Simulated assay, not measured.
Amino acid sequence: MFDGTLNATIGEGVELDRLRAIYDGLLSGSPDQPGDEAMAELAGMARIFDLDADRPPADVWRDLRAVLMRHGSPVARRRDAAPPPRPLTVMVVEDDPGMASELTELLAAAGHGVVGPFSEAAAAGTAAALHTLDLALLDINLAGDGDGVVLARHLKETWGVPVIFLTGNVAAAAENARLATALVLKPYGGRDVMDAIARTVASGAVAP
């Protein structure tokens, strides 16, 4: 199972550009395939992020690449973690009451407006029609009708709201990475969330 110590270790020792140079050929069917040592590294990284390594290497790399690109390396976080240029209106959707409260306090302390927190996708979806949102912080596994993936798709396709997934379900996050601008893996700290928000703003996903 994923933990923050393993994540820090892999992040500090891995450059995404280096990994893409080694493994992207798997996705294109390149005849230059990674060697045995590289394949062992790929399987090891997949297990650290709680992904199923007992699949074709191209499938493993596709999911791992999505996680790494959305989660961001420590180097990328340091470079892009400038404060947002203006206060944001952020929806919080998290069915753990303690985590929802901490997120709300964190965002308010940073000067952002908070819509929520909501514990169910249906209530959050209704609220999205009533507020102008800059961003949504969204758990993938939610109680009630509908899950976080369905809600993320609704927010993105209906209202154009960028989503940051907050989750320990790395496989689900990887499978649905196209719906999110960033990924914060549980357990996380406040700095991880604020860095992900800063990266999302820096990417241009949030309207100026």
Rank of each mutant, 00 (worst) to 15 (best):
A172K: 02
V161Q: 06
G204N: 05
T200Y: 10
S28I: 11
K186G: 00
P87C: 03
V60G: 03
D52M: 11
T158V: 04
A81V: 03
W61C: 06
M69V: 15
M91P: 03
G4W: 15
D52N: 15
R191M: 01
R70H: 10
N169F: 01
M39S: 04
A207G: 03
G168T: 08
P97E: 02
R79M: 04
G29Q: 13
A128F: 00
A177F: 06
Q33H: 14
A128G: 00
A122V: 15
T167G: 10
V90E: 03
L151N: 03
R20M: 11
P57G: 13
S28W: 13
G113Y: 02
A43I: 10
D52E: 14
E37R: 12
D3H: 15
A108H: 13
H154R: 10
P56I: 06
V201K: 07
V67E: 03
H131R: 12
M91S: 11
H71P: 11
A109T: 13
A172F: 01
E157A: 07
F165D: 03
A124Y: 02
A123L: 08
N7E: 15
A196I: 08
F165N: 02
R62Q: 14
P208T: 02
R65E: 08
P85C: 07
H71S: 09
R199K: 11
D24I: 12
P56F: 07
L106C: 09
I48F: 05
R178T: 14
V170G: 05
P83V: 06
T132V: 14
D17R: 11
A121F: 00
P57A: 13
G11A: 14
W159D: 03
P97K: 06
L151P: 09
L19E: 09
A123P: 15
V60K: 05
A207M: 01
V14R: 12
L103C: 14
A21S: 11
W61E: 10
L16V: 14
G168R: 05
V14N: 13
L107V: 06
R153H: 07
A207V: 11
A129M: 12
V163Y: 00
W159F: 15
W61H: 09
A182L: 02
G44R: 13
A66Q: 10
V67S: 04
L42Q: 03
L6C: 12
A66L: 03
A143E: 13
L68D: 10
R20D: 13
A172P: 00
G113D: 14
R86E: 04
A53Q: 07
R153L: 01
G25Y: 08
I48C: 12
P162V: 04
V161S: 01
A43Y: 00
A53P: 13
E37T: 15
R70Y: 07
L133E: 02
S30P: 00
D95E: 03
A38G: 10
V206G: 07
A177W: 09
L68M: 14
L27M: 07
A81Q: 06
L151M: 09
G35V: 11
R20K: 10
G72E: 05
W61D: 06
A198D: 01
P208F: 09
L137F: 08
V149M: 07
L6T: 15
G125S: 06
W61L: 11
M39L: 15
G98N: 01
